[in-house]
Design a binder for these strands. Sequence first.
RNA 1: GCAGGGGUGGCAGAGCCUGGCCAAAUGCGACGGGCUUAGGACCCGCUUCCUUUAGUGGAUGCAAGAGUUCAAAUCUCUUCCCCUGCACCA
Length: 945
Amino acid sequence: MDYKEIDGKWQKAWDDARLFEGEISDTKKPYMITVAFPYVNGPQHIGHLRTFGIADVLARYKRMRGYNVLFPMGFHATGTPILAFAKRIKNHDEDLIRDLKLFHIPDYDIEKMTDPLFIADYFVKEIENGMHKAGYSIDWRRKFVSIEPFFSKFVEWQFGLLNSKGYLVKGRHPVGWCPNENNAVGMHDTKRDVEPEIEKVVGVKFRVDGEDAYLMCTTYRPETISGVTNLFINKDLKHVSCKIDGKTYYMTKAASDILKYQMNVEQVADADGGALLAKTCINPMTGLQLPIFSAAFVEDSFGTGVVMSVPAHAPFDYAALEKLKEQGKALDIKPIKVIEIPDDSQSEFSKIRNMPGYLDIPSLVYIDMFKAKGGEDMLGQATKLQYKEESHHGRMTAKGYEGMSTAQARAKITADMVAAGNAMEMYVMANSPVYCRCGYAIVINVVDQWFLNYGDKGWKELAKKAYSEMTVLPEKSRKAFESAIDWIDLRAVARSQGLGTKFPLEPDKIIESLSDSTIYMSFYTVSAMLRAVPVDKLTAELFNYIFLGHGNMDDVSKSTGVDYAVLRRCKESFEYWYTNMSRHSGPDLIFNHLTMLIFNHATIFSHKYWPKQIVVNGSVLSEGEKMSKSLGNIVPLVDALDKYGADVMRTMVAAGAELFSDSEFSSDAAMGLDERFSYLYDIAQRTDDFEGGELRHIDYWLYSKLNRKIRDVTEQIEKLELRGVSTRVVYDSVLELKRYVNRSEPNGMVLKDYITSVVLMMAPTAPHIAEEIWHMLGNESFVSTEKWPTFDESMISDRIEAEEQLLDSIISDAKQLMAMMRKSGKDPKAITLIVAEEWKRQIGNALHKERNIKKVIDMVNGAKPEIDVPDREKAMKYIQQLAKKMNSISYSEPTQDEEFGLLTEAGQYLSESLGIDVTLEKESVSKSQRAQNSAPQRPAIDISM
RNA sequence: GCAGGGGUGGCAGAGCCUGGCCAAAUGCGACGGGCUUAGGACCCGCUUCCUUUAGUGGAUGCAAGAGUUCAAAUCUCUUCCCCUGCACCA
């Protein structure tokens, strides 16, 4: 098949007919589909086909269901990536240039890509071209780019609105920070692209006995505070005393240098580590006096450089104390156990705890466990396992928290301690040191920032309400959104660099590029009309009128100078289309864009304009691997479309996997699809070669399969379970047709009916081939706007399908038998099939129903027999045989005569398939010894030699 | 660590919600055979083990273990393992 020619032909025909241009209608219900617009910093590869392709399948399906469908598209260019792209070109970045060449981008264009606007413009065109070639049913009149001035006006309006609602707040937030360059660093700004992992920990204050000063220890395990027996410092490090919020603390100098980014730390004086060892502290939970020792494992710049020691629950602490004891120090320190692991838990701990020698010191158990195993970092591994098992199975024994789970106690103790002023929350970098590209180690800075306050309670409630009314596909991603809505809190909205809209409250900043695109979908409803309006006329008043219905047309027209007809059409367009919108994207956007979209819609638009559906889909693997530059398996979309055709690619990538999982591109699968499409195309061409005529068993079978298919596929496509749709429509249809054609001479009318419906069901995923076959079948209309087929429940017959299956099992049984005979040198001449008697069916059905042998025996052999049998002894034997496999007895619908009739009709098919004469007889008249082996839907087979 | 998703035959992947007709669809791959000058095309068979030289039988089996049930890939619990996300970044 010449896919390229077919694709081009129908794409042009659709364009000429302006088939996909959405206009509002009085009679048809709207259905608007929007996809997260593509970011224009690179060409499209086949991965893009997934989200956009699925959306297009839905658009095409809904169109066939009679909806007035609008599928618009725009382009995203705000933020820093395009600037970074231009910078890399300027620096002649070889990797990037090589990638671009892979996509056949000519040198003279690459040279111009030092200009960000050129880049954006270039890829807008590239992507639009690819989308056209993929056959998306997009209304292109509405496209816009997110850096166009008229869109910026819309974004400014939105932020003004959010500010007036009080959702823009100034706040403080921990970020990875380069002390050298003085700016925030994310993963992309670090050496080897390491994400700085910021963790919240608890800083516990231990008051120095007899002084108004404290030693503070950061800990992940506040539940063990009452088990603290002493503190550790490293006396060889440089220490200082410093003031934090009026209180004096001792810590290492390095720690205080780092901590000053996240709190008010003022260094007062140097402090001598050795002198600190002479002091003691008070445990804020138990009041115990704690000595201070020196230990080498204490790190200079992690936390405060002061560590609390819990020998019962921390292998490092236990080991350090043991070492001290060897030196004659810390002799009176005894581990204090505060967490107990029950004996019956499935922990490693409980397996060996009761061995002699463990004086109720959990950490010692873990240490010995790993000592026995040997290997590196014995204490580290012991710590890890103990932490894990105590977190999982542990129960508190500490005073005041007895019986609590470790997790509960951790939260409760933290809260109690903070409330009493004995602890504070602070941040540490879990994977420190992380280095900025400039070479400096990154610290944590708590910075002032403008935020969108998604933590606002009222707003959250509103978002939850909006979400609860939405359809989410696939259903199993629902929970992810629920936790995202709960979790999302302050979100920084301004950045110091990047393309985009200026932040109204701080005009030297740019609005962060996910924040500027939370409600842009609504802009599609008016973009084509507003493009003609001078930008300075796009005031807040105008947007308030169009999107919120504020004010009246005359006033707005007068004050903005915009023609009232334009205003009215914009308002009508928005109010029509935006009542029914489905939003599509990949799962990576759940925790940011999609959640923000829910929040912003909920607060900006009135209830009827909230999104009705969110669809999240997986991505695409290329030949079994994730697409990546290093593997070199990135396939440019346009190349693939040219090589395999749009429909093969659409079916494979968009419909090749379940919604949430990754689909896979492979040339094998492409060949497989090509074969099936070709088969459908060929057989459609031949429908007129066959006569009509009275319907036979096999015709009813095909109708049954077809109607079942329509029923199931309709149900699946509604849920966008496209893998099921494509296997049923493409793969299964070919299998069914092959069987139908093999079984006997096709009925031309039946064949055409079948193919017509299959083509209609193919239209959303494989629209070009569907159009081609549709017209080949003699239709003049576009299949793209035809009606989706309906099914007739009465044509779906389990029985007929089971009966056809019976033929298959007879054939395979007989083949097996003949093979066996030939193996032993015998030569089969003819086959007799012996159909089981009626009483066997009755017994089988009774057993199936009653599941009770005695009852059935009674029915045959009792005082008042309900089942009439010719020979009671035989019948008893038969019951016993069946009883053994009670669970697998199925109900037999066909009577002996019906089964006989079916086999008679299929006689020729059986003979041909087996290559041997097949005759039939009933059990009662058969003289064969094998006749008694016959069972309902399992005729006995007698082979004569 | 927290949150979400998952673990099915050589591979991919259905089935699980609504337990029984499930040794488990379908596709790919491997193997054997046919067709053919040839074949990456097409057709047939086979792809857990045992049994049977006239069949429909049996065992084991859907990460591991336990439970519920007449009956478990499917329901419940526990454990192990894998993937994704954890923010100012599109």
